[in-house]
């Protein structure tokens, strides 16, 4: 990979702060209202809405945090709160979400961070969404 790009990634990474803070802090969901969602984001939202009938759904395009061109739709975080996760282990929940988004994961989506909760868990957590780790520059491979 181009050394210049990698260095730029590092700078951005450093700017965004220590990765360890991800275990210590939570960030409120970033608003996606001000920007028009891209086609991939819309598809993800649609598929998750249809399948899980979620009481809460966030689809966050985090591509800007990574070394990809502006406007990319490669890195996403989804927050899905649904009754369908009742009595399912976390790994099963993630498999359910991955399954619904299989096409996207085989295609344009490079990274998917998943938060899958039951309505009760979501309420208990106060609606907190943990922060995603900063990029480390390995996208160009």
């Amino acid at each position: 990979m181009n050394v210049g790009v990698r260095q730029a990634c590092r700078l951005v990474t450093a700017y965004r702060g220590n990765l360890l803070s991800l275990t210590a802090r939570s960030a409120r969901t970033m608003s996606t209202e001000e920007k028009q969602p891209g086609p991939v984001e819309s598809t993800i939202r649609e598929k998750l809405s249809q399948h899980f009938q979620p009481s809460h759904l966030d689809v966050i395009n985090e591509s800007y945090m990574h070394c990809v061109p502006p406007g990319s739709e490669t890195h996403f975080k989804v927050v899905v709160v649904s009754d369908m996760f009742d009595n399912e282990a976390i790994i099963k929940r993630h498999r359910m979400v991955n399954g619904v988004l299989q096409e996207e994961l085989e295609g344009p989506v490079h990274a998917l961070s998943i938060m899958a909760k039951t309505p009760k868990q979501w309420e208990d957590s106060g609606g907190k969404v943990s922060k995603s780790p900063a990029c480390r520059g390995g996208m160009g491979q």
């Binding site: 780790p133 990029c135 480390r136 390995g138």
Partner: peptide
């Protein structure tokens, strides 16, 4: 993972190493 524990090449891989 992406990269090696001494130098992870992805934030998610790095998080696993740190944990």
């Amino acid at each position: 993972m992406k990269g090696v524990p001494q130098q992870p090449m992805c934030g998610f891989s790095n998080a696993v190493v740190q944990i």
